[in-house]
Amino acid sequence: DNLVIALHSYEPSHDGDLGFEKGEQLRILEQSGEWWKAQSLTTGQEGFIPFNFVAKA
Protein backbone atom coordinates (compact mmCIF):
# COMPACT_ATOMS: atom_id res chain seq x y z
CA ASP A 1 0.00 0.00 0.00
CA ASN A 2 1.10 3.60 -0.45
CA LEU A 3 1.60 4.30 3.25
CA VAL A 4 4.14 6.78 4.57
CA ILE A 5 5.02 8.10 8.01
CA ALA A 6 5.67 11.75 8.81
CA LEU A 7 9.28 12.51 9.74
CA HIS A 8 8.39 16.08 10.75
CA SER A 9 5.23 17.98 11.61
CA TYR A 10 3.86 20.22 8.86
CA GLU A 11 1.67 23.31 9.19
CA PRO A 12 -0.28 24.00 5.99
CA SER A 13 0.71 27.28 4.31
CA HIS A 14 -1.63 27.19 1.28
CA ASP A 15 -5.24 26.22 0.65
CA GLY A 16 -5.31 22.54 -0.24
CA ASP A 17 -2.30 21.63 1.90
CA LEU A 18 -2.66 18.88 4.48
CA GLY A 19 -1.20 19.52 7.92
CA PHE A 20 0.10 16.60 9.96
CA GLU A 21 2.06 15.71 13.07
CA LYS A 22 5.40 13.91 13.29
CA GLY A 23 4.76 10.16 13.40
CA GLU A 24 1.36 10.39 11.69
CA GLN A 25 0.62 7.81 8.98
CA LEU A 26 -0.62 8.98 5.61
CA ARG A 27 -1.80 7.23 2.45
CA ILE A 28 -0.34 8.65 -0.77
CA LEU A 29 -3.04 9.16 -3.41
CA GLU A 30 -0.94 10.83 -6.12
CA GLN A 31 2.79 11.43 -6.54
CA SER A 32 3.66 14.41 -8.71
CA GLY A 33 6.78 16.51 -8.31
CA GLU A 34 7.59 17.77 -4.82
CA TRP A 35 3.97 17.92 -3.59
CA TRP A 36 2.08 14.67 -3.15
CA LYS A 37 -1.66 14.30 -2.59
CA ALA A 38 -2.22 12.34 0.60
CA GLN A 39 -4.90 11.29 3.06
CA SER A 40 -4.30 11.27 6.80
CA LEU A 41 -5.13 7.93 8.42
CA THR A 42 -5.69 9.85 11.67
CA THR A 43 -8.17 12.52 10.50
CA GLY A 44 -9.28 11.20 7.09
CA GLN A 45 -8.55 14.61 5.56
CA GLU A 46 -6.92 14.91 2.13
CA GLY A 47 -4.52 17.48 0.77
CA PHE A 48 -1.06 18.13 -0.57
CA ILE A 49 2.08 17.41 1.45
CA PRO A 50 5.79 18.11 0.86
CA PHE A 51 7.25 14.74 -0.18
CA ASN A 52 10.48 15.25 1.78
CA PHE A 53 8.60 15.36 5.10
CA VAL A 54 7.60 11.68 4.86
CA ALA A 55 9.19 8.24 4.44
CA LYS A 56 7.80 4.86 3.40
CA ALA A 57 6.10 3.21 6.37
Rank of each mutant, 00 (worst) to 15 (best):
Y10G: 01
P50K: 06
S40F: 02
L26T: 01
W36C: 10
L3P: 01
S32Y: 13
P12T: 06
E46R: 09
G23P: 01
A55P: 03
G16S: 08
T42A: 13
T43W: 02
Q25F: 15
P50S: 04
A57M: 15
E34Q: 13
G47S: 01
S9F: 07
Y10N: 02
F53M: 10
S32P: 03
N2M: 14
A38V: 13
S40P: 00
T43K: 03
A6P: 00
G16Q: 08
G23H: 05
I28H: 00
G23K: 00
E24D: 11
E11L: 13
W35N: 06
I5L: 07
G23D: 06
D15P: 15
D15M: 11
V54F: 08
L41H: 02
L29D: 02
A6R: 01
F53G: 03
V54T: 03
D15V: 13
H8A: 12
I5G: 01
E46W: 12
G47H: 01
L3S: 03
T42H: 11
A38R: 02
V54H: 02
G19R: 12
S13H: 15
G47T: 02
L41D: 02
E24G: 02
G33I: 03
S13K: 15
R27I: 12
E30M: 08
L18M: 08
L29F: 06
L41E: 04
L18G: 01
F48Q: 06
N2W: 13
H8P: 01
F48P: 00
F53E: 03
Q39C: 09
A57R: 08
E34W: 14
E34P: 13
E46I: 15
T42I: 13
K37F: 15
F53S: 08
T43M: 03
P12S: 14
G23C: 08
N52F: 10
L41I: 11
I49M: 02
E24A: 06
A55H: 08
E46G: 03
G19M: 07
L18D: 01
A38E: 00
H14A: 11
E11Y: 14
K22M: 09
N2K: 09
G19S: 08
K22T: 06
S13N: 11
E11W: 14
D1R: 09
G44P: 01
E11P: 07
T42E: 10
G19F: 07
T43Y: 02
R27D: 01
Y10C: 06
P12G: 09
L41P: 04
L18E: 01
D1K: 08
G44R: 06
P12Y: 05
L26P: 00
E46P: 02
E34H: 14
A6W: 03
Y10E: 00
A6E: 01
W35V: 08
I49W: 03
V4I: 05
F48N: 08
K56E: 10
R27C: 08
K56T: 12
R27E: 03
T42M: 11
Q25S: 10
A57L: 15
E21Q: 14
V54P: 01
V4C: 07
F48A: 05
K37V: 10
T43D: 05
S32Q: 12
E46C: 14
Q39Y: 11
F20C: 04
Q39G: 03
E30R: 07
D15W: 12
N52S: 12
S40L: 05
F53C: 13
W36F: 08
K22F: 06
S40V: 04
Q39P: 00
F51G: 12
L3F: 11
E46Y: 12
G23W: 06
G23E: 02
A38W: 04
P50V: 05
D1M: 11
F20N: 00
F51D: 05
R27T: 05
T42N: 09
I5E: 05
W35P: 02
I5Q: 04
T42F: 09
G16L: 08
L29H: 02
D17H: 15
T42P: 03
L26R: 00
Q31A: 14
D17L: 13
A38L: 07
G33A: 05
L26S: 00
G16W: 15
K37T: 07
D17I: 08
L26E: 02
I5F: 10
T43V: 01
L41R: 02
P50G: 02
I28Y: 01
T42D: 08
D15F: 12
E24P: 00
G44I: 02
H8V: 13
R27H: 06
A57I: 15
A38F: 04
E34F: 15
A6G: 05
E30G: 08
I49G: 01
S32C: 15
Q39W: 06
Q39N: 02
S40T: 04
G33D: 04
T43Q: 02
K56C: 12
N52V: 07
D17T: 11
W35C: 12
G16Y: 10
L18F: 06
E21P: 03
G44T: 03
P12E: 04
D1Q: 10
H14Y: 09
Y10D: 00
V4Q: 04
L3M: 10
L3N: 04
V4L: 06
S32V: 14
D1A: 10
Q31G: 08
R27N: 05
D15E: 13
W36T: 06
E46V: 15
L29A: 01
P12I: 06
E11T: 15
F48K: 08
I28F: 00
S40W: 02
G16R: 09
G44C: 11
Q25W: 15
I49V: 08
S32T: 13
K37H: 08
Q31N: 10
T43N: 07
K22P: 04
E21W: 08
D15H: 11
G44K: 07
V4F: 15
N2D: 11
P12M: 06
E21G: 08
E34K: 14
L29N: 01
T43I: 01
E34G: 10
K56Q: 11
W36L: 09
E24V: 04
H14S: 11
A55R: 10
K37R: 14
F48C: 14
S9A: 11
V4W: 15
F48I: 07
G47D: 00
K56D: 10
H14D: 09
F48R: 10
L41A: 05
K37D: 00
T42V: 13
Y10M: 05
